[in-house]
Design a protein around this nucleic acid. Structure first.
Lengths: 228, 228
DNA sequence: CCCGTATATTACCCACTGGTAATCAAATGT
DNA sequence: ACATTTGATTACCAGTGGGTAATATACGGG
């Protein structure tokens, strides 16, 4: 709608670039609408015509931006993957004990899970995709599972995490986090930060009260975790 | 196929009863096949004709036992619900601290989650159902969420569980458990018992090692969980 | 031996929906 | 002004799949 009018000569915003930018914005709008509807009603119960309708266009217009419905889904998975990658990369490259990195990953993952693209990565069914793109999605998912598992293994070695089956432990953590998509509502009373904080605490320190009523362990953070 | 021939007069197995029994068995066979295919391929990607084919019948024959595909799904949800109800009922009626009951519930839920009907209750999408049956499913799901939450609240009061947001805590526990359906394979290396044990421990005691190397709490099972 | 009931089959219908073809309109650039 | 390119529309096609009607077969009962 708004036409910013580049005007000046030698502007980096030549009309050609302008066109291309507008096109990308429209493509993004399709993806944002698609992810919302897919999450709300499910992939199968969301006809392309409804996505188009909500964008005030008609179904064939979508084919200017995507070759198929499946390609839209594929793009959504990729955007979701980027969400998580941005959070995980720095943590993996950083330093800290296995437990500390695991906690950081839980926070990062919870943060991504409270966004539309993050949710769709965890909630939409990759079985809709053909073999090749599906393999890509599964590789990405395995990558995060492995990231959790690796830090748990490190933690067991460096003594920050109790002895356990790291594979099962990583499944439990990832399961709790993926479940966020099933109940989180952006307008709800629970801010994403609070979710990330409690999950990071609960999944590592557990729910059970410490045996001695004195401050439990070496971590003096029983009630001081709320800050951003 | 087998015709047991009731023969005797006044037998409780009149031919009529015999017919009805055979009918119920066939109905069950449909449900068992349906749940397997729905879990494997997804509800939408499983045509009724394929369920029928795998049972060596044709699609319209299914309509002798169910009025619609949706009714099959509804029956599956109900069977799943029964799985969980059987586990939860005794625990709720029994005694124990909030923490102890929570642990028992985690074990029971994990046990149910490793069955076909239990998985379908957690994994299949209730949005396929019409308003009324869907409300029933959601009521059942809320019932289990509330059961977890109630024990967590009790535990916070009786001192067995640390202070936390019980709603969020219950979501985390349920999420980890529901996630089992995403990776559990009956033929896999992980027996259902081992999963239930580690989840009950990990979700209550956490992953972090205790600060003092002495045995942390009342549970002496720090490193005895690996056997198959 | 024949009839009625239950259960299965074949053939069919039709709604939905992803995708395409032909066409049209608007902005771009010479 | 005019041709070209881009992006949108209307009309349409075809596969898929749930559900139904008509019909055949098998079995128990009089």
């Amino acid at each position: 709608m708004s036409a910013p009018k580049p005007v000046m000569e030698t502007s980096p915003w030549t009309p050609f670039e302008d066109r291309r930018r507008a096109r990308d914005e429209k493509r993004d709008a399709v993806l944002r609408m698609a992810v919302r509807l897919f999450l709300e009603d499910g992939y199968h119960r969301t006809p392309l015509a409804r996505i188009a309708e909500r964008l005030n266009i008609t179904k064939p217009a979508l084919y200017n931006y995507f070759a198929s419905k499946e390609e839209i889904l594929q793009a959504l998975f990729r955007l979701g993957d980027e969400q998580y990658e941005e959070g995980f990369g720095p943590i993996e490259r950083g330093s800290g004990s296995g437990l500390e990195k695991l906690r950081a990953m839980i926070r990062a993952y919870a943060g991504s899970m409270t966004t539309d693209f993050g949710m769709c990565f965890a909630r939409l069914d990759d079985r809709e995709l053909a073999e090749a793109p599906r393999a890509e999605v599964r590789r990405a998912k395995r990558r995060y599972d492995l990231a959790f598992r690796t830090q748990i293994e490190r933690g067991v070695e460096d003594g920050s995490i109790r002895s356990c089956d790291p594979k099962l432990a990583a499944f439990a953590v990832a399961g709790a986090l993926n479940g966020i998509a099933d109940w989180y509502k952006p307008a709800g009373a629970l801010p994403a930060e609070a979710i990330a904080d409690q999950f990071a605490l609960q999944l590592t320190e557990g729910l059970a009260a410490r045996a001695d009523p004195a401050r439990p362990a070496g971590k003096p953070k029983t009630a001081a975790k709320q800050e951003g």
